[in-house]
Nucleic acid binder design. Sequence first.
DNA 1: CCATGTTGCATGAAAAGGAATATTTTTAAT
DNA 2: ATTAAAAATATTCCTTTTCATGCAACATGG
Lengths: 171, 171
Amino acid sequence: MLKDSGWPSMAQRKSATNGRAVLTAGDGFARSYLAYLLARASFNVSNEFHAMLKTWRMTVPEWRVLACLTDVEGLSVGELAAMALMKQPRLTKVLDRMERDGLLKRRSTASDRRRVALHLTAKGRTRVAPVLLAARTHEADLLAQFTSTERATIKHALDLLIGRAGRSAAD
Amino acid sequence: MLKDSGWPSMAQRKSATNGRAVLTAGDGFARSYLAYLLARASFNVSNEFHAMLKTWRMTVPEWRVLACLTDVEGLSVGELAAMALMKQPRLTKVLDRMERDGLLKRRSTASDRRRVALHLTAKGRTRVAPVLLAARTHEADLLAQFTSTERATIKHALDLLIGRAGRSAAD
DNA sequence: CCATGTTGCATGAAAAGGAATATTTTTAAT
DNA sequence: ATTAAAAATATTCCTTTTCATGCAACATGG
């Protein structure tokens, strides 16, 4: 099932753990399905860091919100939901918790009073700062395993996937 | 923040929606952080298909379990959890529902009576069959947007990421 | 064998998430 | 203006997930 849909062949690998052995065995779904490979790659990369978040007593959605708002202040709820890959009702609840904890503020917008502009508080910035550093370090460690050519390949692949996946070819 | 950790530069893009415009603006977190780009790529690729799952009244974890067990019969709970990128207690409860719905069976193992071997029922196979076809089609449509060179790049990048992420260089 | 530790899975209370819908504000059409 | 439609966020009800822990079966060292 799902054997070959235009992929080039992939070299076999082995691993010590039971789970890994199964994962890399055979040639079905788990070895060739694009969505699965992407999910696994994402999982592998994010997982270690997510474990580190416990050190800071920070949840994953909290981290995402803080990181996004560090990037772009004043996002609306909808914009942040899109950026943080969450659906809006979920984000609203995450924001409730974070606002209650004093990490951010909701400000109503003058021009469109339906919109809510989100701003980190000083407390929020203080909270996210060390985690951002850890994220940078973690990423650097990961990327250091690759040659610059490999890094370019990865970046190019993600560019392709983010650019074209999930919309028509004309866009 | 998180500006540059060894990435090659990425061309700018624009998009119609508000969310997208924010996503692709600037040069922070959302444009350069590997974990984020991977999560977004995975999200983009999987999302449309996950929406289709509603057509079959199938949840995402149910789909993952059915797809994995289609690939490899007789997996243990732990193996399946690793393969389906879920933690074990969650999988146990997903399995409870699916077993109750007659989609699979738990069989105790003779050699190690702690282990539980998982097997699809005929009903489970019937249920997953059309979804597997849809998955193949969806993937083929997606991959058709790329040249074979681009497909090779994507595959190679995923191979690199899955091979090396989340473990030491020596493994 | 027995004690001790470990592994594999299940469970239970508490928190979080999802789908549908409500509410308020804006936009558009007449 | 007025009414209808759309958009942004919040809310509600119900299901699912999580975290911690429990329990049984295996492994190992004396």
